[in-house]
């Protein structure tokens, strides 16, 4: 105890590297699980309720989500961390509000996308995964989709980093692409863990593809390719509208927004030209 620490020790280089490794391992676990599931999908699901694939899907995707959380969560600044509960609440409450307009979409990631845009891909991924875990306290069926939710937050952050949120017309496109990727990754969960989707509209689309003789995974993937891109385009648009509606003073307090000039316009500190 020769030198008492009066200040917070800066995270060392080694800690940073191991976190990066954890992040990569988490992403690799999710990707490998998906590839494995698609390659080994049971040719004849009538032989049993896809129990093997369900276990692999649950284990691989949850492992990936947990690794991402462990890697990202301890290094998030407090100002970002306190937004994660807000994001989760927004996911739920805004989803319910949108539902009250009678639109046929299942909009449940607005908060995750908003955090991804304001605080970056890592924060977005952690928010998505944590949202699923905390929300599973009330609805356990969202837990298996944690990896997909993390992917949505991550891709929203990457889109913001590449400047797609500076121009309004790029936002739905970014959402559309995110929807394609996230929908395809989440399809094995819907197929093998739940054996279908829970909505009537989505269920009808899956039924149509099944009637044409598709395998369950193929039918659900095609259904996801129909509904998810549209859904995420709307979610991204709403999140962008919210980000634009927020005062500069609020949005520019995020280092990510300042550093990558996520939103068009000058920092409020800069004198107006």
């Amino acid at each position: 105890m020769s030198k008492p620490a009066l200040t917070v020790p800066a995270p060392g280089q080694a800690a940073g590297r191991s976190r990066r490794l954890l992040e990569i391992a988490g992403a690799a676990a999710i990707a490998a699980t998906y590839v494995f599931l698609v390659l080994t999908q049971p040719a004849d699901i009538a032989n049993g309720p896809a129990s093997f694939s369900a276990l692999v899907a649950l284990g691989g995707f949850l492992l990936g989500a947990v690794l991402l959380i462990i890697a990202v969560l301890p290094v998030l600044p407090t100002s970002t961390l306190v937004l994660i509960p807000v994001a989760l609440v927004l996911n739920v409450v805004l989803g319910q509000l949108m539902g009250s307009t009678g639109l046929p979409f299942y909009i449940d990631a607005i908060g995750t996308v908003l955090i991804g845009v304001l605080a970056g891909p890592a924060a977005g991924a952690a928010t998505g995964a944590l949202s699923s875990i905390v929300w599973s306290f009330f609805n356990p069926t969202v837990l298996p989709f944690a990896a997909g939710a993390a992917l949505i937050g991550f891709l929203a952050g990457m889109a913001a980093r590449w400047g797609l949120f500076r121009r309004f017309y790029f936002v739905p496109i970014a959402g559309f692409v995110t929807g394609i990727i996230a929908g395809v990754i989440s399809a094995p969960i819907a197929a093998f863990v739940f054996g279908g989707t829970s909505g009537l509209g989505t269920g009808a689309i899956v039924s149509a593809f099944r009637a044409m003789g598709d395998t369950l995974l193929a039918a659900i993937t095609k259904q996801a390719l129909i509904s998810d891109p549209m859904d995420k385009a709307i979610v991204f648009t709403i999140a962008a509208l919210l980000a634009y509606a927020l005062p500069r003073r609020t949005t520019f307090q995020f280092p990510f927004v300042r550093r990558f000039r996520v939103l068009a316009g000058k920092s409020p500190a800069a004198p107006d030209a």
Binding site: S79, V82, L94, L97, L242, A245
Partner: peptide, 25 residues
């Protein structure tokens, strides 16, 4: 008009929650 009313409710909610979060941080 429904979307309009939605905006009238969502923007104050998000703004207030983010402001609260800032002071909580």
């Amino acid at each position: 008009s429904r979307m309009g009313t939605l905006r009238l409710q969502m923007v104050p909610l998000v703004l207030a929650l983010m402001d609260d979060a800032g002071s909580r941080a």
